[in-house]
């Protein structure tokens, strides 16, 4: 079947629609998912198509949105709970971490939690400190949960469909500034991408850039600039923070002997720290330079646009970091 360029938003919508058509147990609950059509318009038209039973508007109550979705999943439904932005997921941390991720283990496998929690991440939109995070790495700390971070429309569709069909709880993190990005996506109702597989988004031999989502976008721009100077970057898109698939990173590193990790999260205890530690463990003999990290600055994000962008990763910062290691 032909691949058609669609937006990241359309990828999400079509994944949801197809999976709801496929399985009666799949339903959506969250703030403004129904009458409003989703604050990011991902579920526009769903209420008319599927009805109020399967497209359920909730009060502004993140604890019970996440917690009731856990209960419904334990009982045999396949909920897709929407937490409008990841900033509000902090209110639901207990339901997500202590319950979604742990009830299976704690009760020795008596329960499964086939749950997807969709949420949006990212700064750069002048929303101020409390609304501008990319804190998905926090959730990747906990066993029992998967964390998806798709960076293209293609990945968003295949990963969301796979998440909905999987029997484990998935925190599905969408980037709020990437909803209009287009890429070709197979027009196949069974188009699925494997859970926990990273992906080489650009081939190169001089440096390995490990990244995801907004970092991927910046890294692709940076790589084109670097190529003009004869530096070829290989870009590994993690796609999932858990399960974390670093095999392609190790393989690439053994070729390039250099690595820069790019992410929008804060600089301490972040994805870069984990990747660097694992490269040390596995690839010590192949290291020609320290692993560099490009992340947000270690401050809350401000409102004013120029200084907000100053605090976030950019192609320029990536180019600078790469030049430090090559």
């Amino acid at each position: 079947m032909a691949d058609r360029p669609i937006t990241y938003r359309e990828a999400l919508s079509s994944a949801l629609r197809e999976e709801m058509q496929r399985d009666e147990r799949v339903f959506i609950m969250g703030e403004e998912v129904g009458v409003w059509g989703g604050t990011y318009a991902v579920t526009r038209g769903f209420l008319d198509e599927f009805g109020a039973r399967r497209v359920r508007d909730t009060p502004i109550s993140e604890m019970v949105i996440a917690g009731a979705a856990v209960g419904a999943a334990m009982a045999g439904l396949r909920p897709i709970a929407e937490i409008m932005t990841i900033n509000f997921a902090f209110l639901a941390l207990d339901a997500i971490i202590n319950h979604a991720a742990k009830v299976r283990y704690m009760f020795n496998g008596q329960f499964t939690v086939p749950l997807v929690i969709r949420t949006t991440t990212g700064g750069g939109k002048q929303l101020g400190a409390t609304h501008s995070h990319a804190p998905e790495v926090i959730f990747a700390h906990f066993p029992g949960l998967y964390v998806a971070v798709p960076g293209t429309a293609y990945d968003a569709k295949g990963m969301l469909k796979a998440s909905i069909r999987d029997d484990n709880p998935v925190l599905f993190v969408e980037h709020s500034t990437m909803l209009q990005r287009r890429s070709p996506v197979p027009d196949d109702p069974d188009f699925l991408l494997p859970i926990g597989k990273s992906d080489i988004k650009r081939k190169g031999s001089d440096v390995t850039i490990v990244t995801y989502q907004k970092g991927l976008e910046h890294s692709l721009v940076a790589a084109e600039e670097l190529a003009k100077e004869g530096i070829e970057a290989e870009i590994v898109d993690l796609r999932w923070l858990r399960p974390l698939d670093l095999e392609p990173v190790f393989e690439s590193f053994k070729k390039t002997n250099r690595c820069v990790v790019v992410e929008e999260s804060l600089p301490m205890f972040n994805v870069g720290a984990e990747v660097a530690a694992q490269i040390h463990d596995v690839c010590f003999d192949w290291m020609d330079a320290p692993v560099k990290r490009v992340a947000a600055m270690d401050i809350p994000l401000p409102y004013s646009h120029e200084i907000e962008l100053m605090a976030l990763p950019s192609p320029e910062k990536i180019i600078r970091a790469v030049k430090e290691v090559v």
């Binding site: 019970v64 009731a68 209960g71 419904a72 009982a75 339901a95």
Partner: peptide, 12 residues
Amino acid sequence: GHLPLAAGIALK
């Protein structure tokens, strides 16, 4: 912590 779970089981 179990109260929202109860709501979810009832929703099913």
